[in-house]
Amino acid sequence: MTAWYYSDAMNRRQGPVDTATLAGLQRQGGVDEATLVWRDGLAEWQPLRTLLSEILATPAFAPDTTATAPDTASQVHDYASAAAIPVSSPASPYTPPASPLAEQDDFQSGGEVVYAGFWKRFAALAIDSFVIGIAYYGMVIAMMIVLGLGAGMMEGSAAAGGMFALVAMVYLIYPLLSALYYVGFESSSRQATLGKMAVGIKVTDASGRRLSRGQALGRWFSHLLSYFTLYIGYLMAGFTDRKRGLHDMVAGTLVVDRWAYTASPQQQRRELGAVTIVVMVLALLAILAYAAIVLAIAIPAYHSYVQRAAGV
């Protein structure tokens, strides 16, 4: 016997009832065509109108000739914007979210989730650091020009005050830009910074939903823990469950594929992707170039020191 569940006027789950009972409720006005129903075998809750032919085709009830199946795009849209049914204890793995889908963008619970690994996150961080760095140095250079011109017309304590203001802004602008950048992008509808968009990942809360401004700000502050642990907090994303860094654990966030928790989870990708590979190669070349510059400076300096020590 098929067991059906349905929502009442207060969006509370009712049931289970058999098919004949549900058909009787429909005839008596206890449920209408917009009522969300679910049975074992359905991937998600659906409006009653889409299942009338199945429910009313019972020995006790003839099909209702006034009921029609949805034949317009507007009816499908109505279902997409219908409120999901809150439940106190899930009866199946298909239990829907507890808040209206319209308030959660395209959020969909359930399904496989591909978590963003260390290298994708590294590539995203490299891109984001480059973007913030360009903006930062552009602002610093502009301020140095402005304050330099102003200091030329100042004397004594006024000039010293201008230099102090410049130094203070040099140290304060970067964290301010970083906070505005990460909080603004990660709490947006894209849930991702420019770097994360480029590699196809996004940030969610522990349930897969979009971060609020406060949650995004808390996640930004929690990055300090990864700095204090000499970047070990970032390396944790390579071997922890759900690929979380220390800051993710503290802030209660996840970094997942851009298609996770959507209506198209099958589009998630586990491979690194072209952007990630290109950024990794460029980062490796930058590290090698930096090492070559350091060695080019350090080796002559070391030889000079040895010669002075030997009294040559």
Rank of each mutant, 00 (worst) to 15 (best):
K120I: 00
K120C: 02
K120V: 00
K120F: 04
K120Y: 01
K120L: 00
R121F: 04
R121H: 00
R121S: 03
F122W: 03
F122K: 04
F122T: 07
F122H: 05
A123I: 01
A123P: 04
A123C: 08
A124M: 00
A124Q: 05
A124W: 05
A124Y: 01
A124S: 03
L125N: 13
L125M: 13
I127H: 05
I127P: 03
D128V: 09
D128L: 09
S129E: 06
S129W: 07
S129G: 02
F130I: 01
F130K: 03
F130W: 07
F130C: 03
F130V: 06
V131F: 10
V131L: 13
V131H: 11
I132N: 14
G133V: 02
G133N: 08
G133E: 05
I134K: 06
I134G: 01
I134N: 06
I134E: 05
A135F: 01
A135T: 09
Y136E: 07
Y136W: 09
Y136P: 06
Y137P: 11
Y137E: 14
Y137F: 15
G138N: 07
G138H: 06
M139I: 08
M139P: 02
V140I: 13
V140S: 07
V140K: 07
V140F: 11
I141P: 12
I141F: 15
M143D: 04
M143P: 04
M143Q: 07
M144Q: 15
M144N: 14
M144C: 13
I145E: 15
I145S: 14
I145H: 14
V146P: 11
V146N: 07
V146C: 10
G148P: 06
G148H: 05
G148F: 10
L149N: 15
L149Q: 14
L149Y: 14
G150F: 07
G150L: 10
G150I: 10
G150C: 04
G150H: 04
A151G: 15
A151C: 13
A151H: 12
A151L: 11
G152Q: 13
G152M: 14
G152D: 14
M153R: 15
M153H: 15
M154A: 15
M154N: 13
E155C: 11
G156C: 10
S157E: 13
S157A: 14
A158W: 09
A158M: 08
A158F: 06
A158P: 06
A159C: 06
A159N: 08
A159Q: 10
A159L: 09
A160W: 04
A160R: 00
A160C: 02
G161W: 10
G161L: 12
G161A: 14
G162A: 11
G162H: 06
G162E: 09
G162Y: 04
M163P: 04
M163W: 05
F164K: 01
F164C: 01
F164T: 02
F164S: 04
A165R: 00
A165S: 12
A165I: 09
A165W: 03
A165D: 01
L166N: 12
L166D: 09
L166C: 09
L166M: 12
L166I: 06
L166F: 13
L166Q: 11
V167W: 02
V167M: 07
A168K: 02
A168R: 01
A168I: 01
M169C: 08
M169E: 08
M169K: 00
V170A: 05
Y171P: 05
Y171A: 12
L172D: 02
L172H: 02
L172Q: 00
I173P: 00
I173L: 10
I173S: 10
